[in-house]
């Protein structure tokens, strides 16, 4: 569970992972936008555009609503902190993360829920109908994704004999205890993929590019934010996207990740990781171009499918293993 390593190395690894998450995440958003633009026969902004946006937002004077309370100004920090902390529980380029002991998949899900709780409060705090609408919709989408998410990861956890993400990834990467039949994995993978689309607010559940009151969810909650507060929230949502892509990439296909701490293994691990998440970003960009956003009350069916898939994954696991 806890790799034997000197404390300095552990802290260095944690910091390195935080730096990777912080630095790579805007590029992933930029990449998805670029893919969408190209598929729509547009030139589109450069992949590095989100960095420029963040820089600009940080340097703008923030405008706060007179109705808001300290909850509104504290929320960006809480969302940022909970997202980054959740990101540190999952291995990115090295499979043995020092923070593995701090929490398992349940802690991961509930940390993200902490950020969501405050974001919902902030949406209500501004007093306008848009914020409340976004909060209310976010709540229902979250209610339907979390059970599916927990069931899907549990099916994987059983194969690896652990619910701690780092242990799952490490064992899968070393091909320990892998089931001979991958059907349980495939079921869980498709469930998690649907969950990720919903959790990160992508088409067909939410459209990150819209500001139309009838359709927006995440954007409605953060509508009243500006300046540095908006910058933190945008950054946090990019990190959340990257963390979920990492979850898919490393839990279901961890091969290539550094299983030891040699410089060679670490650099290969980082390179493979970047290729994997870039590939997933391409996939998401393509999906966003191919599908229309679902009506809010049709999302239920989609997430119901995710839950059933996860349940089938669990059933297959027990059936095939006896």
């Amino acid at each position: 569970m806890i790799p034997d390593q000197p404390i300095a190395q552990a802290i260095a690894l944690i910091l390195a992972q935080a730096v990777v998450l912080l630095c790579v995440s805007p590029a992933i958003v930029g990449l998805i936008n670029k893919v969408k633009a190209r598929l729509q026969c547009r030139q589109g902004a450069g992949i590095l555009q989100p960095y420029a946006d963040l820089k600009k937002l940080f340097r703008k004077q923030p405008v706060l609503s007179t109705t808001t309370t300290w909850i509104f100004t504290a929320t960006p920090y809480i969302v940022f902190a909970s997202t980054v902390t959740a990101g540190l529980l999952i291995p990115v380029f090295a499979s043995q993360m020092p923070l593995n002991f701090a929490g398992n998949i349940i802690a991961f899900v509930y940390l993200l829920a902490l950020g969501r709780f405050f974001l919902i409060l902030a949406g209500l705090d501004s007093g306008s109908s848009f914020g409340g609408m976004g909060s209310s919709r976010e709540a229902i989408v979250a209610s339907l994704t979390e059970p599916a998410m927990i069931m899907a990861i549990f099916a994987i956890a059983l194969t690896a004999g652990s619910t701690n993400l780092s242990t799952i990834v490490h064992r899968t990467a070393l091909l320990e205890g892998i089931a001979t039949d991958p059907s349980a994995h495939l079921m869980a993978l498709s469930a998690v993929f649907i969950v990720v689309l919903a959790e990160t607010g992508r088409v067909p559940v939410d459209n990150p590019a819209t500001h139309l009151e009838l359709t927006m969810i995440h954007e409605a909650m953060v509508l009243e934010y500006s300046g540095r507060y908006l910058a933190l929230l945008e950054w946090a949502s990019a990190i959340k996207l990257l963390v979920f892509l990492t979850l898919i990439a490393n839990v279901f296909a961890p091969w290539g990740i550094a299983t030891s701490f040699t410089p060679m293994a670490l650099s290969v691990g980082l390179a493979v990781y970047l290729i994997k998440v870039a590939g997933l970003a391409l996939l998401i960009g393509t999906i966003e171009c191919m599908f229309a956003k679902l009506r809010l009350f049709r999302v239920t069916d989609l997430l119901g499918v995710a839950f059933i898939l996860a349940l089938l994954g669990l059933l297959f696991f027990y059936m095939l293993r006896g």
Partner: peptide, 25 residues
């Protein structure tokens, strides 16, 4: 990480004072 967020804000533009205004309705 919350301190990191505060630090980031302090490094890049945290000095700008906040302006208060009514919520757009």
């Amino acid at each position: 990480t919350a301190a990191l967020g505060l630090g980031l804000v302090a490094c890049c533009g945290g000095t700008f004072p906040r302006r208060y205004s009514k919520t757009w309705a």
